[in-house]
Simulated assay, not measured.
Amino acid sequence: MDVRPSGIHHVTAIASDPQANADFYLNVLGMRLVKRTVNFDSPETYHLYYGDRAGNPGTIMTFFPWPDAPKGRIGAGQATTTTFSVPEGSLSWWADHLSTLDIPFTSPTERGEEDVLSLRDPDGLLIELAASADHHDTDPWDGGAVPTDRAIRGIRAVTLTEQDADGTAQMLGDQLGFRLHSESADRMRFHTNDSGDGVGTIVDVLADPKAERGLVAAGTVHHVAYRAPDTSVQDAWRRRLADDGVGVTEIRDRSYFTSIYFREPGGVLLEIATDGPGFDYDEPLMDLGRSLKLPPWLQPRQDQIAANLPHLEVPR
């Protein structure tokens, strides 16, 4: 069975204040809150999902916001940058938008064939906006603070920073089937398909032998998830990784997809998540993110769990 990857499914990071997190991703980046649930392994904590109109795979950024979370440290053994794709020619609009909101950012700079603008979220998570002419089969949210002709199309890429990148590159190429596209003195770019076109198809591996090890806490990425179309492909991937001696988990039910987890040699936690059943599994598409949703095994405790969560105000 072909278990070649089909791009990023989502990126999950750690935040502190859930309200500040929601305000930023809704009002600054203009994404849609597509699911308001909890960390299934720690249900006293929200799990917030942002994406396009339907939360299509490749558009999703998720957060575990722990109000008392210590400050993390971005460094080696982490996904250190998450890059979102925006329409070609839109960065001047984004610069004006961020300036109006007093959000610090770097001036757009040229990287390869793209212009890239960098900023940080309220917890210091490093984000890039890359102006791309590539085709993106997504559905930008038209109910937020950003016009659809300027809106985020999805996740363009992630950057993994490694003290020793050789093992990471070997896993990406030999075990996960990524294609090495380009290489410089300290950076390797891999594609998950032949062209690099589309959402979530790029991973950059940055070799920095002097980088301090990262500390996963507020303002850092927890894991990067890649896509499997269904559980049969996911299980084939799990068995192949296990046969290669990689420590991989059993398949876990996340309600909106199923998941397996493993670490690449440099320490970054990776996930393989199925495309379905999707975020309209337990609420209508037009109502996504409006109310707290729990998996069946937590629903008997819904009132108790809701009462212990921080207040979160999200505009309708």
Rank of each mutant, 00 (worst) to 15 (best):
Y256T: 07
Y261C: 04
E271S: 06
D244A: 15
V248L: 11
T249H: 13
P265M: 06
T249E: 12
A273L: 01
Y256S: 05
G266I: 08
T249C: 10
G266D: 06
R254A: 10
I251S: 07
I260R: 00
I272E: 00
V246L: 08
R240Y: 13
E250H: 10
D253I: 08
E250L: 03
Y256L: 10
S255Y: 06
S259F: 02
D253S: 04
D243I: 01
I260C: 04
V268L: 15
G267L: 08
Y256N: 05
D244T: 08
E250N: 12
V268Y: 00
I251R: 13
G266N: 09
L269R: 10
L270N: 03
R254G: 08
A273W: 00
D275A: 12
V268I: 15
V248P: 13
Y261Q: 05
I260A: 06
Y261D: 07
F257H: 01
R254N: 09
S259K: 07
R254Q: 09
L269Q: 12
L270K: 00
L241Q: 01
T258S: 12
L241F: 11
G267F: 03
F257E: 00
G247M: 11
S259M: 04
I260H: 02
R252V: 05
E250I: 02
F257P: 03
V268C: 07
V246T: 15
L269C: 07
G247L: 11
G247F: 04
L270P: 00
D244C: 10
I251A: 09
I260E: 01
G266C: 11
V246P: 04
V248T: 15
L270A: 02
L270G: 00
R263G: 01
V246G: 07
R240K: 15
G266A: 15
E250T: 12
Y256H: 06
V248R: 08
Y256M: 08
G245T: 05
R252K: 14
I260N: 05
R252H: 09
D275L: 10
S259H: 05
D275N: 15
G247C: 10
L270R: 00
P265I: 04
R252G: 01
F262K: 03
G267K: 05
Y261A: 02
A273P: 08
V246D: 02
E264Y: 04
A242V: 14
R263S: 10
G247R: 10
E271V: 07
D243S: 14
R254Y: 00
Y256G: 03
F262H: 12
D244F: 09
F257M: 03
E264R: 04
R239D: 14
L269W: 03
D243L: 10
Y261F: 14
E250S: 10
E264D: 13
V268N: 06
V246I: 15
I251N: 02
L241V: 11
D253G: 02
G247K: 11
G267V: 14
E264C: 09
F257T: 04
Y261T: 03
D243E: 15
T258G: 01
Y261M: 05
I272N: 05
G247W: 01
S255D: 06
Y256A: 08
T258Y: 00
I251M: 13
P265W: 08
T249S: 15
P265E: 12
I272Q: 03
R240V: 06
Y261V: 03
G247A: 13
A242T: 14
